[in-house]
């Protein structure tokens, strides 16, 4: 890739890639957060069940 001229398209593509990666990270983080918090909240209730 060295020696190739820097074009606005390549800059835009690089920026888009950076944003997409960050968005993917945030979305996966959200899934994990909701999953773990569900376990945390459910855990107490399961432990205290009457049967």
């Amino acid at each position: 890739m060295t020696g190739q001229p820097k074009t606005p398209e390549s800059d835009a593509a690089r920026s888009l890639k950076s944003r997409n990666r960050a968005l993917a990270f945030v979305l996966v983080g959200f899934v994990v957060l909701f999953f773990v918090m569900t376990l945390v909240r459910l855990g107490g209730n399961v432990a205290e069940r009457s049967f």
Binding site: P8, D11, A12, S15, L16, S18, R19, A22
Partner: peptide, 11 residues
């Protein structure tokens, strides 16, 4: 309508 050059660090 120019393609956005914003990166994650800009946000």
């Amino acid at each position: 309508h120019a393609p956005s050059l914003a990166t994650a660090s800009d946000f």
